[in-house]
Each structure stands twice: as C-alpha cells, then as structure tokens.
Design a protein around this nucleic acid. Structure first.
Lengths: 109, 109
DNA sequence: AATATTTGACGTATATTTGCGTCAAATTAG
DNA sequence: CTAATTTGACGCAAATATACGTCAAATATT
C-alpha cells in the first residue's frame, strides 16, 4: 500500500465510505439492532448477546463510536452506549443521494 | 483472529454487512457513481477517472462484482461493467428494514 | 502472420481489521 | 478500607484489504 490513498478522493465519498464501512461487519449491525430492539441503551453486557468476547465487542463499540453512530456516556461503573440520531440522519441523507444517483438510470449493456 | 467468526452471525446480518462492506471504500463508491453519472457501462479506462492504478481499480471492480453490485460482460477485447439493478434492489430492501428498525425508537439515555 | 491493446491472474509489500487475553484504573458493594 | 465488578488500554497473532508491477492470454489492428 505504501500510502493510504483514501485521502485522494472527494471528501463526501470519504465520509460515505467511512459510514458504510462501519456498517460492514455483522457484529456492529447486531449491536445497532440490539440497541433498537431493546429500545434502550447498552450497559456493558452486550458481549453476551454476541458470539464474541467482551474485548472484541468493546472494540466494535469503539469503532461505532469513532464513526459517530453511537455515543458513550459514563454512568458510574457502567458505560451507556446510545444511538446518535444525528449521525443516523447523516447516513440517511448520504444513502438517499447515493441511491437516487444510482436509480436514476436504467442501464443497458 | 484464528477463525473467521463472521459466520457465527445471522445470515441476514452477514448479507447486509457484506453489501455495506462493498460500499466501504471511496474508490468503489466513485466507480458506482461514475457508472450512474455517465449513464453507461464501463469499458476499461475507468482507472483514468480514479487516482489509482489500473491494477488496483481492477481489483475494486472485482470486489464489486463479487458483491453482485455490478456485472461484467466481455465484449471482444473490452469488458463492459454494468450496475446490477437486482442487487441494488436487495440493497435498498436491506437498508430500508435496517433504518426502520433503528428509526423506530427515539432512544434517550 | 506480426504487432499492439486490453484485461485478468499472479505475486508481493504494507496497512488495516479482527479477535482475544491480560492488566490497570475507576467505581461500587460489603 | 477491602474486595469485587466494569471498562478501556495495551499488546499480540492471524486474517483481510489495499495498492501496485509484471506477465500472459485473448482480441483487434496492420
């Protein structure tokens, strides 16, 4: 690779790719779904919901946080992870414009 | 890693993650956008549209093909890459159910 | 038939992701 | 205060992704 060429692309493409990438692992999708299903924030023991160790789950949580899709609030001994509605909005917007661009054409070969 | 634990997840999560993953690189997004913008199929020289070598672009094309988002048709010396509308439909469906699940709740911490 | 173009296959190097165990700091409970 | 719980930081190993050069097969051109 030598150099990370990712930065050579339009910033909107970079932002979009970063978000999709965050969604690109079943564990992270399951975490998000779990958040939605239980209608609550996460307090620690999500690792028992996943077939992965606590350490690994924590890593996925960190990545979702880095992507901005969830937020962590420390609450004493526990940490509460919650969805970030603002970032979900951004995702929706990005996806919408992407799919509209794609859908606009019925390509024939 | 030792073992790929990806297979331990629900197949729908796996399928979704695989699609999002394919979208998780700016080069691949740009390729898809280029396909849409030019309202045509790709015949070879997309690498000139990207800040990457032909070899690398070809690799990204292969990945998009593997994900099913595009199809390649050999046409003599050239190869035509086209969007696969069926897979785009699948993506839309997957994304829709995902975002609806997420959106259903206004989580408060 | 000989040459040029186009493409994917292959190999390689580096970067990143994935997964886990261990440990230490912070916090809570007893 | 001491012991237990919870979490993130750190390090490590293996797998994947990213990027590219080179080469060979297929096709088109001359």
């Amino acid at each position: 690779m030598v150099l990370a060429k990712t930065t050579l692309f339009d910033s909107d493409l970079q932002e979009a790719a970063q978000l999709y990438k965050a969604l690109g692992h079943p564990a992270r999708l399951q975490i998000l779904r779990y958040l939605a299903d239980t209608k609550s924030c996460i307090t620690g023991d999500i690792s028992e919901e996943l077939p992965l160790s606590r350490t690994t789950v924590n890593q996925h949580l960190t990545e979702l946080k880095k992507a901005g899709l969830i937020q962590g609030h420390v609450n004493g001994k526990r940490t509460n992870y919650c969805l970030n509605p603002e970032k979900v909005k951004v995702l929706k917007k990005i996806y919408k414009s992407f799919i509209e661009e794609i859908e606009a054409n019925n390509l024939e070969c």
